[in-house]
Structure formats: structure tokens, C-alpha cells
Design a protein around this nucleic acid. Structure first.
Length: 155
DNA sequence: GCCAACGTTGGC
DNA sequence: GCCAACGTTGGC
């Protein structure tokens, strides 16, 4: 079992949106970055836990926890010309992009803000706190997970 | 809205 | 295969 951090812009899809979905489950589509795609395709497994992170908004930070309930399969938005995620270079035979299904687990009482995460002495290697890291999906170590989880619940 | 940092594209 | 130009990300 592995730990991850998934970023989402709450204006597009927030943790509340996830909690309000049928079965509180949603395909995590729209990943169009190869490094993030490779994580999804090769490493993200059913049962993995992930921090739900709100980016590009007024209050950025970790807002809750979700769990992977379906491993990588073809992201159907890449075949839809109407979608902003449409990729004309991808084919049904050889899909370029994949997605996983995630299920809501928990919303923290308060957001764990990025500024606090950056101030935590235990968190120095996480991509989130490294300059210029823009990955929308990144691995989290078990010790990082424990530290962040405790900090979120202490807040 | 600004802008730095990064990834991707495409001409050569 | 290089690299400049361009588009995107994402914190502030």
C-alpha cells in the first residue's frame, strides 16, 4: 500500500464534489503530464491512500483523504473532441492517458495550508515543497504521511 | 493578475 | 537531437 498526493483545483473539482458523488467515487481524469501518468499507470494501486490537495485557489493545502478504488484504465476524455482534455494523437488501440477511480474517505476539519506544510521540519523532500515542482500527482512516504496526517488533525 | 519555472512542440 | 518559442502551472 502506497501513499500519494493528488492536486485538484477546487473550482473544477473539490473534495466536497467528491463527497457528493454517487458512492463518493469519481474517475480522476484529465492527467496530461507524462510523469504523473506514469505514476498512475505503474504505481497507483487499489487500496492506496491519497491526500486531496486544493491548488490554484484562495486557500491552498491538503483538505482530506481519499482511497484508490480502481487502478489505471483509459481516460475516456482523451477520445472526446468536446472535452478540454481531448488528445487527437491518442487512439483507442493505444490510449496515451489513463485515470484511476478515487473514493472519498475523510475531510479534515480544517485545511492544512501549504504554508504550514512548508514550515514542517519533517517535510523537506516532498515535491510539494520543492521549488518549481508542478506535478499534479506525487508520491508521499509513510513518514511524511504520518506527519501530515497528524498535523492536519491537530489543526 | 503577475511571473517564475517548467514541459512540450516543432523547425532545422 | 538541439533549442527557441510557446503554453501551462500554481503560489503569491
Amino acid at each position: 500500500m502506497a501513499y500519494w498526493l493528488f492536486k485538484s483545483e477546487p473550482d473544477a473539482f473539490s473534495i466536497d464534489d467528491l463527497a457528493n458523488r454517487p458512492n463518493q467515487t469519481e474517475p480522476w481524469d484529465g492527467i496530461r503530464n507524462y510523469q504523473a501518468r506514469n505514476f498512475l499507470r505503474d504505481d497507483v494501486k487499489v487500496g492506496d491512500q491519497l491526500f486531496f490537495y486544493h491548488s490554484s485557489c484562495k486557500d491552498v493545502g491538503i483538505v482530506g483523504v481519499a482511497e484508490v478504488v480502481k487502478a489505471a484504465y483509459a481516460d475516456d476524455s482523451q477520445f472526446n473532441p468536446e472535452s478540454k482534455y481531448y488528445d487527437p494523437k491518442s487512439s483507442q488501440d493505444n490510449p496515451r492517458w489513463v485515470m484511476v477511480d478515487v473514493q472519498f474517505k475523510q475531510k479534515f476539519k480544517r485545511i492544512l495550508p501549504l504554508a504550514k506544510i512548508k514550515a514542517m521540519p519533517q517535510i523537506t523532500e516532498l515535491g510539494l515543497v520543492k521549488k518549481g515542482h508542478r506535478l499534479s500527482i506525487m508520491p508521499v512516504t509513510e513518514s511524511e504521511w504520518d506527519s501530515l496526517y497528524q498535523a492536519a488533525n491537530a489543526g
